[in-house]
Design a protein around this nucleic acid. Structure first.
Lengths: 177, 177
DNA sequence: GTAAAATCGTACCGACTTGTCTGTTTTTAA
DNA sequence: TTAAAAACAGACAAGTCGGTACGATTTTAC
């Protein structure tokens, strides 16, 4: 990846995640990235395409971090509980800004921006599959249940800007296992 | 309430809910409401204030509809399950647009629009209290758990634009009761 | 060293943003 | 009927929006 392209993606990622998609202008992105507007449009055909590139990269990075937390943990039960430690880590690191994918879902027009919707759906499907995978064995029947609680944990902690909901949900999951 | 004020609130409600807050302009609202811009600003000091008025009215109407579905149902267990019938009704009626409160949460700046954040938090707190209230008795210990699954049901059905997640979650709750 | 590719700055486009202001017309109520 | 309140249309401000076009300059690679 070119140096400029990376600078654009880094700036856009930070701004989209911090302020939201619609609240972040192209001019703000090029100022933050310290590149020319023409350079941006040489790498990305439109703001929506830049959004997709952002989401696709975030998808990879987000999963990498998730695996980094969960995979080393030994034991099915402990792995499933580690999911919620990961949420708490992200909340701290990113100041309770929640899930970029769900945030952008709230901003787009499903009809006119269906390409973005697809990336968001894919991300969540992959997450659900991941949880199903680590649930294989004793807790296979709880996979979806835990996925739904995982989603709630992200949203409720974003809403109240505190870890309390994650801790509550982690305890609920503990009681299920 | 004045006739004009109501027309403004009706138009703004529809547009905010259908398109989102930031994607809806003042000019679009006054055109849809068929009123003059000066009339809008006579009733609402700013777009943010209009947003708060919208959320407060939606809070009332939403709860009224929820109670209309749940309250007539007899039996604690059946009441708790009816929560998810309500979600499905809303999904159908509103084409899977999800929760206005969470959608707007994703759009605002928590620092600069804290008045809006408060209304959103209050709405969710009231919902949680409501579920706690109808759980009183045998299922008091499940109140929070069901609230979290309720939230997930709204979001996941918005994401995939189908009732499947609600039905899945309703079955999960059934297995808990 | 030279040619190609990348990036540059900036002006420009038309449309849109929230909000204010002015003066006129309509509605309401005593 | 008259006075006050409400709503009207529309111009205006000062800026932002996403996106295009321009030629000039820098970087890269052979």
């Amino acid at each position: 990846m070119t140096k400029a392209k990376e600078k654009i993606l880094n700036a856009a990622s930070r701004l989209f995640h911090e302020q939201g998609y619609n609240s972040t202008g192209i001019n703000e992105i090029i100022a933050a990235a310290n590149i020319a507007k023409s350079t941006l449009y040489q790498h990305f055909a439109s703001k929506d395409q830049l959004c997709i590139a952002f989401l696709e990269r975030r998808h990879q990075q987000w999963f990498a971090q998730l695996c980094q937390v969960v995979d080393p943990v030994v034991g099915e039960q402990a792995k499933l509980l580690a999911l919620f430690d990961f949420i708490m880590q992200m909340n701290e690191k990113e100041e309770f800004r929640g899930c970029s994918f769900l945030n952008i879902l709230s901003e787009i027009s499903v009809e006119e921006q269906s390409a973005i919707l697809q990336v968001i759906q894919q991300h969540k499907t992959d997450l659900q599959d991941y949880i199903t995978a680590i649930s294989q064995g004793t807790y296979a029947h709880l996979a979806d249940h835990i996925y739904f609680l995982f989603e709630s944990a992200i949203i409720e902690s974003q809403l109240y800007r505190e870890q309390t909901p994650v801790l509550k949900i982690k305890n609920i999951v503990k009681s299920l296992l």
